[in-house]
Design a protein around this nucleic acid. Sequence first.
DNA 1: GACGGAACGT
DNA 2: ACGTTCCGTC
Length: 511
Amino acid sequence: MKAGCSIVEKPEGGGGYQFPDWAYKTESSPGSRQIQLWHFILELLQKEEFRHVIAWQQGEYGEFVIKDPDEVARLWGRRKCKPQMNYDKLSRALRYYYNKRILHKTKGKRFTYKFNFNKLVMPNYPFINIRSSGVVPQSAPPVPTASSRFHFPPLDTHSPTSAVRPGRFSAGSLAASGQESASGADRKAELPELEDSSAADWRRGVDLLSSSRSAAGGGLGHQKRKPDIMLPLFTRPGMYPDPHSPFAVSPLPGRGGVLNVPISPALSLTPTIFSYSPSPGLSPFTSSSCFSFNPEEMKHYLHSQACSVFNYHLSPRTFPRYPGLMVPPLQCQVHPEESAQFSIKLQPPPAGRKNRERVESSEDSAPITAPTVAPVPPRIKVEPASDKDPESLRQLVREEQRSHEEGTVPSSRTTEEEKGTIFARPAAPVWPSVPVSSPSEEPLEVTEDSEDRPGKEPSAPEKKEDALMPPKLRLKRRWNDDPEARELSKNGKCLWSGSGPQGLATAAADA
DNA sequence: GACGGAACGT
DNA sequence: ACGTTCCGTC
């Protein structure tokens, strides 16, 4: 293993941002189990120290500029233990995000990219601390307006201990997503600067993210669950302790975090008062005793989901499957089945060069001879015409949507409203000089989490499901509940435990 | 510089 | 899945 490579940027005891451990779990890093580039980018983006290297572009939601490509590449390379990393490679990786709709290029502007935040948004389990805590974006991307509405109360940072305060960071979170399956086919078709608002696009993007989850079965489909992308949502201003980090008070001691995603521009407009939590697997339900489930919460949750549909043009599929629950205001009932079924966009595998090359190589001697050989498969990306969504719902959504466009706050917003406009247009936090304590430049890095997983009962979601589940299965599940949960957490932990907290401190030296 | 195909690694 | 590495093309 490249254990020794754990680079790492220091965890920064006090000044650093701390994140919930789930941010580092598998869920957040599909596949490789390691940090994903976009996480990393966000991470850098949120650190004052790297402002000269990469920073949000003023005036554009989610847009950022890589001021020092080489440096960013270097940092990335270090993080990934890829000394050979360079901007060219990094940018390739970035380009892959285009199709995934995580990012897109700002044409005409060098080294400038833009996050498609709204496409990443995935409502998850908002039951957490919903009403009591508010989270405010800290290092948020610039927002057009200048109204600095947010005030950040003094931070009570020091709680590096294991004091767990789930509620705190639960509100803002970002989990990776399995995304994918998106055919990026249409990408080229999109307008150069097609905004995130392209509803269709939008929906699609979200669907991607959500479909897997819903299909997974309300967060229960063990093991094979795709990670979800979640962006931090701030609920109510004024509650957040640290002007710079929504996760400042994370229970996880000293951990540079990745997922402390600066609120997305898109989200910044989000009126939601619900907070989001990590993917199901890491959901508080299973990991923390601080979360409890209750019908009311569930209702809220659902409601929020519904709102999301309206607000973000999310596909109905976004709804988890809680058929029994009603979403009053929207009365869009989502059938479990419906939400479960979604079509997949086909994308024929690339023609592959193997054949071609094989032929070539076998004929090197005769260079130009005959390419006559390979009938290059058409590179056509097939995309089912219909998006097979529950039309009805879709319709609803569309309509609603029409009424209140993107930035507008849906009426269902509830309580938030009174505060009025709070979310209308959050101003870009003008991070003043930040005494983030560390002069050190290595931000990130993760220290290992401590077993903050008191084998909590996977209660809430499961219960819900239980009700809908055949007795037999139900039993079985019950039976396995705990063990599984334990197992899961173990796994997650294992992933990152390569060298423990200490190993992390290494990299700092680099600079 | 930006893009994207292809092969390969984990 | 998510890059990393190369590379040809624009």
